[in-house]
Amino acid sequence: MSQNQNRSGDNNLKYAVDIVLCVDTTASMARMLANVKQSAMSFPNRLAQEMAAKGRGISSLRLKVIGFRDYADCAEDAMVVSPFLRVPDDLDSFEKTVNALHAGGGGDEPESALEALALAIGSDWETGLDRRRHVIVMFTDASAHRLGDPRHTSAATYPQSVPGSLEELYAQWGSGQSHSARMENPAKRLLMFAPESYPWTDIADDWNNTIYFPSVAGEGLEEWEMDQIIATIANSL
């Protein structure tokens, strides 16, 4: 047999990618949200192009959106959570989900971003395919409320699955050999576009598999272009 024919064991492993977009939908995020909406339809294709340019194929791509505001301000509309939407089959649903997000409310800082992060961590991540990537992307221009505050947890709409402290949430994220983790250590990534305030700097320093793009507090996220964000997500995979 010629050596050119003997390639069957070569792998071409592809990536099964789940991405949860956690989007702050309070009033101050209006411009960023418009940017996200504008890019939503092209996001899967652009991500696939970035991956292809790196020589990496995607065998499965699922997207999920969590829009969050503030349980302290208005518990009724503090959280909107979509299921995982498979691309390209559910692209229309993804577009509708993103377009339904609107900026408003939230009161003053901080916001309920840690609750959104907790719900993202608890997602029904893909478990069956090779080379899984479970990516959470956080977009916010604010600090976050501390978990466990009874003024928030007493709300009827407050998710019961959210842990009572940042330490418990960290345990769910997990460290290298952690047994309490809900995330698969080799697969997980957390990308944060957030100001240098609680808890984002702590998470960037202490949690593994994180990438943090600090924004200047009070100046929003406009400095991060969507092309750069998509390239960063692809590069983190």
């Binding site: 990534r189 957390l190 944060m192 960037a204 320093d205 949690w207 593994n208 598999n209 994180t210 990438i211 943090y212 793009f213 600090p214 983190s236």
Partner: peptide, 8 residues
């Protein structure tokens, strides 16, 4: 780079 985090 301004980028940070445990991967960076």
């Amino acid at each position: 780079s301004r980028m940070r985090g445990r991967i960076h």
